[in-house]
Design a protein around this nucleic acid. Structure first.
Length: 855
RNA sequence: GCCGGAGUGGCGGAACGGCAUACGCGAUCGACUCAAAAUCGAUUGCCCUAACGGGCAUGUGGGUUCGACUCCCACCUCCGGCACCA
């Protein structure tokens, strides 16, 4: 089978079709017509719909592939970021389908959220209406882009049919003790008048509106993601392929530190208080010279009540409270603090060390108190310098620079211990475990692990979200809404403006309810859930989107999960992806799911910029996909996005670039038109000359695109390979039209190009394939390159002298080393550089290169 | 400060340790046209040369190697993330 398996050559029966078409005058590439036609076919035939196990049409014989893009937030119209995500994802989906996979490729809308609500506050228009209008627009445009979505599985997270199950998940977590209500210092955005998750505070500012956030103590709902900190770390091992930097970002975010908890005691003035501290450096305990509490520390009040320090401490605490997180966290900030006039006892040596309050100690991390070791910690050192406190070195340096007593401080390195009683002389690393052991025996401490990760604050004082299914009863306290009363529907209201409490609180009829437990009067929870909750499980709902009796069918979930390829923006590297991982683990622990990780493979695409800057309405540099689809067609826009550069990197949008790709597609189109009207003979791989060369080039392109797909979605070079194939066809086509075998070669090139470009330009690919080969390209297996045609008879032998290129010689591919060397030495160009010199070494890389080393 | 990623023509970008600059954009020239657009074709890293040729170029400086964009060491710049996390 000299010409490979695919595409089929046209001969015999197809002739009539060809003759019929011959009369048609070559027409221009009209993407609009072609695209509308195929979109109708896909919609009418429900081409991309797949069935669940047990349903009619389910094909269990093929391996499954779940290809998923991060669902869009429907605000206004889709932008180029959406187009990129789905252009990349769709290419992957098509590629998998043509490799025999049953591909599930659903989409939906992350429809709850602040922008719709803020708009409602401004215009009075209900969020549901703007949101649904936007969804209309997304749906229409996605269809115009020709993305191969299974539309039967479409969902919106704002529908009661969906959020009913979001509420169900809340109840399940509550039952398991993973959802709890607590008063806690929280991040408060004064502009949006809501609390924020820690993850939504960027540089001390609200992630959404940029307003500096304030700290408040409020009762809020939390989800206990910290219970999963260790598994969220260790289960990275279960993932197949995630970008290293995303894993690193999550690792840093979870921020696991090993150390010890050590208890310092204050026994002054009739007080008898224990102050545990967390330290990663128990080996420096003997160097502690003072002790610091966070300004929010709950025992501060008692420590200074009625003492001379009371006034100053209170003043300091109040001042800190007024500061924004941003001010407090500022980089080159001078250390401030106030002495408490109290002291604690260092458990390792019985020393009394003075206590301070200082804002460099954070209540949120560790215990809100620290032992300060100025000799070995930069921050403690600065504080000690500012307050003229003793600095005691307990770890010696190991080199000239650091060994001297007061030079090189603070010293964070390792070395032998000093001034540490019976541990003197030991290396600090060895002493570490001994000290912890000793503390444990004495009951003064223990090994401990701390995380930067905080529990997930899920309640929001906003309207446009899923109501939290909880009820407050004076008799029974907090009572969950029974499952059979779900959904707790979001009521219609008129005033959406936040007033520091949820706008829902004003819907008195709705708030007033019966206690599900005692039947007495009760009030509904008026907070709604963070929208990240909605998107933490949507990928499971897609698997069984219409189920009214359960969030999903277990068989369907077991069949399709996990997501085999997840595609989205790197901006979700921490929040969304970690929340989804947590929710899936929690559900798996309750035996509602069988997988531990939702996303086996993750691909994060880079952001498209315009004129080097992030696109934004205020900057006026946005690119509207609709405009480009209108002007050049969806195929051009999609293919251009994949051609801009490696998709994991960003790229700058260029109108000329889209035109270039459009030109290429039109060129392919014209090639098809031209060859379609010519009588083709049998493909003849045995023939020589241009026909053979073109055939070989087509197989090279098959091989190249296939490898580029598999090597981390190198779409830019894959598309470049198809361009090369088309260019080569243009170069030789006129000479080949003379004989039927030549026409067949050009036809093969055109059909192959259409097959290979199909994942990026599905409409044009489908159209050309149908015209040249008949049938549906998406039902064709991905082509395989014929190794015989990949192999070359002759190769260009590169000849170097001392590593410098001196000549290129055509040589037989099979030629032995001796022959290649002889050829190289005979070359006139080479000899010029050998003149009068002695060849000391000859390197031969068969089929490639000869390097002559001379002296 | 710590952790990632990246520095290659005028621009976006290619290159298992072996032909640097594929492909595209832009530019120049030519064909077609009365003309323009579209299209087709050619040229296009820099320097020297009339030409044949030669020299220099992948952020900088070293190293390994017959041979380095690629590997190693040091540094510079840009981008992203985290950051008073004990």
């Amino acid at each position: 089978m000299a010409h490979g398996r695919h595409p089929r050559t046209r001969s015999g029966g197809g002739g009539a079709f060809v003759l019929h078409k011959i009369a048609v005058v070559s027409s221009a590439y009209e993407p609009k017509k072609i695209e509308a036609r195929w979109q109708k076919v896909w919609a009418d035939e429900r081409t991309w719909e797949v069935a669940n196990p047990g349903q009619p049409g389910f094909d269990g014989s093929r391996p499954k592939a779940y290809v998923l893009e991060m669902l869009p937030y429907p605000s206004g119209e889709p932008h180029v970021g959406h187009l990129k995500t789905y252009a990349v994802g769709d290419a992957i989906a098509h590629f998998r389908r043509r490799h025999g996979y049953e591909v599930i490729h659903p989409m939906g809308y992350d429809a709850f959220g602040l922008p719709a609500e803020n708009n409602a506050i401004k215009t009075g228009e209900p969020p549901r209406e703007v949101t649904e209008r936007s969804i209309e627009s997304f749906r229409r445009q996605f269809q115009e882009w020709g993305i191969s979505i299974d539309w039967a599985r479409e969902i919106g997270t704002h529908t009661p049919e969906y959020y009913r199950w979001t509420q169900w998940i809340f109840l399940k977590l509550f039952e398991r003790g993973l959802a709890y209500r607590a008063e806690a210092p929280v991040q408060w955005c004064p502009k949006d008048a809501t609390v924020l998750a820690n993850e939504q505070v960027i540089d001390g500012r609200c992630d959404r509106c940029g307003t500096p956030v304030e700290q408040r103590r409020l009762e809020q709902w939390f989800w206990k993601i910290t219970d999963y900190a260790d598994r969220l770390l260790s289960d990275f091992d279960l993932l197949e392929s995630w970008p290293e930097h995303v894993v690193t970002m999550q690792r840093n975010w979870i921020g696991r530190s090993e150390g010890a908890e050590v208890t310092f005691r204050c026994q002054e003035g009739g007080l008898d208080l224990d102050f545990p501290v967390f330290t990663t450096r128990p080996d420096t305990l003997f160097g502690a010279t003072f002790f610091v509490l966070a300004p929010e520390h709950p025992e501060l009040e008692r420590l200074v009540a009625g003492t001379p320090a009371e006034e100053a401490v209170r003043e300091y605490v109040n001042r800190v409270a007024r500061e924004s997180a941003e001010e407090r966290g500022a980089e080159d900030r001078d250390k401030t603090g106030v002495p408490l006039g109290r002291s604690v006892v260092n458990p390792v040596n019985g020393e009394e060390i003075p206590m301070f309050v200082a804002d460099y100690v954070l209540m949120e991390y560790g215990t809100g108190a620290i032992m300060a070791v100025p000799a070995h910690d930069n921050r403690d050192y600065e504080f000690a310098k500012a307050f003229d406190l003793p600095i005691r070195r307990v770890i010696e340096g190991v080199d000239e620079e650091t060994v001297r007593d007061d030079a090189g401080l603070p010293y964070a390195g390792d070395g032998p211990m000093t001034g540490s009683g019976r541990f003197d002389g030991k290396h600090n690393r060895d002493a570490y475990a001994e000290i912890v052991e000793w503390l444990t025996e004495e009951g003064r401490g223990r090994a401990s692990v701390n995380y930067r990760l905080r529990d997930w604050l899920v309640s929001r004082q906003r309207y446009w979200g899923a109501p939290i299914p909880m009820v407050y009863c004076d008799e029974c306290g907090i009572v969950p809404v029974p499952e059979d009363q779900l959904p707790v529907e979001l009521p219609e209201i008129v005033d959406y403006a936040p007033k520091g409490r949820s706008p829902l609180a004003a819907a008195e009829d709705w708030v007033a309810t019966e206690c599900p437990r005692c039947g007495g009067p009760a009030r509904r929870e008026t907070d709604t859930m963070d929208t990240f909750v909605d998107s933490a499980w949507y990928f499971i709902r897609y698997l069984d989107p219409q189920d009214e009796d359960a969030p999903w069918d277990r068989d369907a979930a077991d069949h399709w999960m996990p997501v085999d390829q997840y595609i989205g923006g790197v901006e979700h590297a921490i929040l969304h992806l970690m929340y989804a991982r947590f929710v899936v683990k929690a559900l798996a622990d309750m035996d509602w799911l069988s997988v531990q990780e939702p996303f086996a493979n993750l691909f994060t695409q880079g952001m498209i910029t315009r004129d080097g800057a992030k696109m934004s309405k205020s900057r006026g540099n946005t690119v509207s996909p609709a405009d480009y689809v209108e002007r050049y067609g969806a195929d051009s826009a999609r293919t251009y996005i994949c051609f801009m550069g490696p998709p994991e990197r960003g790229g700058d949008w260029s109108d000329e670039g889209v035109e270039g790709v459009n030109r290429f597609l039109a060129r392919l189109w014209r090639l098809c038109e031209e060859v379609e009207g010519r009588e083709a003979g049998e493909l003849d791989a045995g023939a020589g000359g241009d026909a053979r060369e073109l055939l070989a080039k087509a197989h090279w392109a098959i091989d190249k695109t296939t490898r580029d797909f598999q090597r981390g979605f190198q779409f830019n070079t894959a598309i470049a390979a198809v361009m090369e194939l088309v260019n080569d066809a243009y170069r030789v086509k006129d000479g080949l039209y003379g004989d039927p075998a030549g026409v067949a070669a050009v036809r093969f090139a055109a059909a192959t190009a259409s097959s290979l470009i199909f994942p990026f330009a599905p409409h044009l690919g489908a159209e050309i394939w149908e015209r040249l080969e008949g049938g549906r390209i998406w039902e064709q297996p991905w082509p395989e390159a014929d190794p015989e045609l990949l192999a070359r008879d002759t190769v260009t032998l590169v000849v170097q002298v001392n590593g410098k290129l001196r000549d290129r010689i055509e040589a037989a591919a099979e030629a032995p080393e001796e022959e290649l060397l002889a050829l190289a030495r005979e070359s006139e160009k080479v000899r010029r550089h050998l003149d009068g010199k002695e060849i000391v070494k000859e390197i031969v890389v068969p089929g490639k290169l000869v390097n002559l080393v001379v002296r």
